[in-house]
Each structure stands twice: as C-alpha cells, then as structure tokens.
Computed example of a mutant assay.
Amino acid sequence: MHGAFPRLDIGTLSEYREDHIMIARFSDYRHEHQSLVFPHRHSFYHLVLFTEGRGPHTIDFHRFQAEPFQVYFMIPGQVHSWDFDEELEGYVVNFSDSFFKSFLLQPEYLDSFSFFDQDSSNNVVTLSENIRARVSGLFEELLSQNERATAWRDDIVRVLLLQIFLLIEQSDSVDRKKSAEKSKNPTVRNFIRLIDKHYDRLRLPGQYAEMLNVTPNHLNALCKEHVGRQAGELIRNRIVLEAKRLLINLDLTVSQIAYKLNFSDNSYFTKFFRKETGMTPEDFRKSPAI
C-alpha cells in the first residue's frame, strides 16, 4: 500500500484535458494510466464495463472479482483500486458531477439509480444475457460519438449514457427490491443525501429531521421501513466509511483524521471507531481490508 492516495480529476486522465467527460477502451485507459493500481479516489463518476478478462477490484474496502459483462459504477469520493495480472478489455467512462445537471430538470436524477450508491456492495452489476449485446452496442456508439467534434456531441453522449443506465436499472441485472427501496421514499433519499454533505458536522438524527421538516421518530421509522436501518446507524456508517477512506492515507496521523472528522480528541475517535468496527484505527491500517 502506498503512503497516500490521490484524488483524481478528469483532466488528468483525459487525452484532451476536458474537465467533464472522458470515454475510452479499458485497455487503452489502463495502458496510459498504469499507476492507477494503487488506492485512489475520483472527483467524478467512474463507469467501467468489462467484456474480456478477469481480476480483483476493490471499491471502498469491498473486494470484487471482475469478469466479462460486469459493470462497475463508482460515485465521486469512493476509494478504489485494481490488481489485474491479465489483460482486460471493455469500456471506461468518466463524467463530472455537473455533466447531467445542466441537461436534466432534476439535478439529483442520478441518485435514483440503485447502482450509484455510497454502499459499494451495490456498485457492481452483472448484466443479464438478454441486454449484453445492446449495452455493448451503446458503449461502442459512445466511443464513436466521442470522436466527433459536433455541436450536439455532448448531448448525444448524455442520451446514450442515460439509455445505458435506464436499460440496466429496468433489467433483471439489478436487485429489484434494492432498486424499489432507493426510489420509493423521497424523505429517506434526501436524508442520505444530507448525511453525505454534513456527516462531519451533524451527528444527531434530530438535526437532520429538522432540516427535512419531520420529527426524529418519523425519520427513524421511515429509515427502518425503507432501508432496514435506524437513522443514527446511517449517520454512523457514513462517518466510519470516511474514516476508513482517510486511514488508508498513511501520511495522515490518527489524530489528524480525528480532527478532520470533527471529533473532540483522538481517544474519542478511537473509541467510536472501535465500537462501530470492532477494531482500533491502528488495527484497521494493518488489516487485509486495505
């Protein structure tokens, strides 16, 4: 493991230094960015469809075995790495958080898809056989459109990406129950979105309930009904996730991480982390999970 992991922007990964979209074949992308085997996080959405080859891939400490016709959906901020011994082929698309917002009336539209999720166990989808050819064809069309310098290019790319997302979301490739749960209740969706913005400052369900104009009891009941967890647990899980992401950066001390997460002192952070994970921050740094 390296001493630090970088936060990458699209411009650093694009031949054309564009800051909103990048599309490439996976073999070309991997060849040009061979250093990306170490843990790193993106400031953009990162989408990969594998069509050939196999190998281990990790997203936020969940380890997966990449194989043909798996799609990996990663959202901004997630930490991931791969360790591929063999040649893999497929497609990779990077796009900024703002790429769709100027195009869609609903700015948070992407959040409605089950695979664009903070829980990395939902980020990997194996395509059902009946849509594989169609999805691959849409990725080929993305590559083709990306090479054209036309006034409508970006809008065509947006439409093609939305076709891919909708096709996968409505297919047998995704867990119907998880998909329905994510789109079912707007209050829970907004709560999770608020946690992602304020987890380092707001720790109590009541603080979020006030922002959502509901009572703490009602918010808790909605969370238990729709995601099977209490509101406080969702907040704590997000804090733990960010703590883990920071802990793999060995350039940061545990005390510095505690400060970044707004814990009053190192001992309080250590006590919190141990209660939630069963290990100390130092033990986590030594574990195979990273």
Rank of each mutant, 00 (worst) to 15 (best):
I131W: 01
I131L: 03
R132I: 01
R132N: 05
R132K: 06
A133C: 05
A133K: 03
A133H: 04
A133P: 02
R134Y: 04
V135F: 00
V135S: 01
V135I: 04
V135T: 01
S136I: 01
S136D: 04
S136R: 10
S136W: 07
S136C: 07
G137W: 00
G137P: 02
L138E: 05
L138D: 00
L138C: 03
F139L: 01
F139Q: 01
E141S: 07
L142S: 03
L142M: 10
L143Q: 09
S144I: 00
S144T: 04
Q145K: 11
Q145Y: 05
Q145A: 09
N146P: 07
N146I: 04
N146Q: 05
N146V: 02
E147K: 11
E147C: 07
R148W: 05
R148D: 07
R148E: 06
A149N: 10
A149W: 09
A149R: 07
T150A: 10
T150I: 11
T150R: 06
R153W: 10
R153M: 14
D154M: 12
D154P: 07
D155C: 10
D155N: 15
D155Q: 15
D155E: 15
V157Y: 10
V157D: 12
R158D: 12
R158P: 13
L160I: 14
L160D: 11
L160C: 11
L160T: 14
L161A: 11
L162M: 14
Q163H: 15
I164E: 09
I164C: 09
I164Y: 10
F165V: 14
L166C: 11
L166W: 13
L166A: 13
L166H: 15
L167Q: 12
I168D: 06
I168H: 02
E169L: 08
Q170L: 09
Q170T: 08
D172R: 03
D172G: 02
D172Q: 02
S173A: 00
S173G: 00
D175S: 00
D175N: 00
D175Y: 00
R176D: 00
K177N: 01
K177F: 01
K178L: 05
K178Y: 03
S179H: 02
S179T: 00
S179F: 03
A180M: 07
E181A: 14
E181R: 14
K182P: 10
K182V: 07
S183T: 15
K184S: 15
K184F: 15
N185E: 12
N185Y: 12
N185R: 12
P186E: 13
P186W: 10
P186R: 01
T187A: 12
T187S: 11
T187C: 11
V188Q: 11
V188A: 12
V188G: 08
R189I: 14
R189L: 14
F191L: 13
F191Y: 15
I192F: 13
R193D: 10
L194Y: 04
L194K: 12
D196H: 14
K197A: 14
K197M: 12
H198Q: 05
H198I: 03
H198Y: 08
H198K: 01
H198L: 06
Y199G: 05
Y199M: 06
Y199T: 02
D200V: 04
D200L: 06
G206N: 00
Q207R: 01
Q207T: 04
Q207A: 05
Y208E: 08
A209H: 08
A209K: 03
A209V: 08
A209T: 08
